[in-house]
Design a binder for these strands. Structure first.
Lengths: 235, 235
DNA sequence: AAGTGGTCTAGACCACCGA
DNA sequence: CGGTGGTCTAGACCACTTA
């Protein structure tokens, strides 16, 4: 492994571990130069790559700083409905409909892959944009992965936003479908039963263990997913 | 603009224009060094970036070569409906419904961003899986970007498959929505007007110029998009 | 064996911008 | 004004690979 890769990896590790939080000023080039006993070009190569990856930003005379988490990056990252609504310039509101703690059962079939009789939280809630229903959310959270969730009522902050700041995730899988609105979804979203809806099911893991599974139902005429790719962006 | 960016841009232009086709050996570093009157590091910086973008690959002692277009990647890359169907283990069939060469008009509003009166090909076709309609495709292809398309009837090979092996792409944008089936789509897919459909609109650019725009309509109950992400994979 | 790319050095000049 | 990052140079050594 080359030296600039080593430097890149170590700085990246500091950032991803939270050791160097957003806004933190990382060491100057000349400091890293001393620390690694190499020339400035080598350090510069590593830091330039981190800029391309969006992990740091650099300001002349001032230094290099860890960037604040990408809100909704180019692809279809973990996205927080609240941020999504606010980025549209609309008022956001949240309402929790139901919350229960229970054991997993056959009705959850496949939604979340946990051992029999695992305990989980089952939540349904709604997100509003500009006063209109924007998204209907049905979520399961594994209590073995996130024990603190049991103490949360989720009546002020949405479970998605709460989890985002709480649990680091390592993998997410999205399934995206078009469906006819079911009765509960139609009621929640104030649309006709059977009208087209975009459904996004996201399952998230952290270190191999399932964390949460969420089904987001959007009225088809009010939502659109946008994803931009570059060939090299694929790992 | 810095010199390494200039070199990068010019080499990229040669590749994207087809001037330097896949397999072509681009000039050696020392040749570019002479041509641009700069040091090897500067040339190297440009070429290393092209490796990251997947446009070239480099072999010691041999030289640097334009790569062959990537076919399909992990996420929701440019995807070929034919490969998609075959990966499901179903028989694939293709039928071209209509094809015309015309000038862009107001009705194309926003689907493809070309100058007034640009010439393009307008195609509608269908993909079948296991004998059943699987996808309805409406596509525009810019003739200024892909002049060879004018000689293609697209009655045996789908335009998507044809383009994939022909034109390198640099950026793609997806828009994903749920809609009620329009009359033409419903007829093509043999479903009821108004039933939910998943619509994927993909626009593709090559070196900043629009290449093609396609709208794929899938019956909502027969299709699902799956995408898997890892946090670090984001650029 | 020879020529390529991979990496690194120890400087340099410059633009920018915050103190 | 001074310190930072952005860029570039003219070398160097090495690993690899293939001609």
């Amino acid at each position: 492994m080359s030296l600039h890769q080593k430097i890149l990896g170590e700085v990246e590790a500091h950032i991803l571990s939270g050791d160097w939080p957003p806004g933190y000023r990382i060491p100057f080039e000349h400091e890293l130069t001393e620390q690694y006993g190499c020339s400035r070009m080598t350090v510069n190569k590593a830091l330039s790559e981190l800029v391309k990856r969006g992990l740091i930003e650099r300001r002349r005379k001032s230094g290099s700083y860890v960037t604040f988490p990408q809100v909704q990056s180019a692809v279809m990252e973990i996205h927080d409905v609240k941020l999504e609504v606010e980025s549209l310039g609309l008022d956001y509101a949240y309402y929790r409909d139901a919350r229960s703690v229970r054991r997993i059962n056959a009705g959850d079939g496949g939604r979340i892959d946990l051992p029999t009789a695992s305990r989980l939280i089952d939540i349904t809630c709604r997100h509003f944009a500009g006063g209109r229903p924007f998204c209907f959310e049905e979520r399961l959270i594994s209590l073995s992965a996130v024990p603190e969730a049991e103490g949360e009522a989720f009546d002020a902050v949405a479970p998605g936003s709460w989890l985002l700041g709480k649990v680091p995730w390592s993998t997410a899988e999205h399934r995206i479908r078009a469906v006819a609105a079911t009765r509960p979804a139609a009621q929640a979203l104030d649309i006709a039963v059977g009208s087209p809806c975009l459904v996004i099911e996201r399952r998230t893991w952290s270190g191999g263990a399932p964390v949460t599974s969420v089904r987001l139902t959007y009225p088809g005429d009010r939502h659109e997913l946008v994803a931009e790719f570059q060939p090299s962006a694929i790992v």
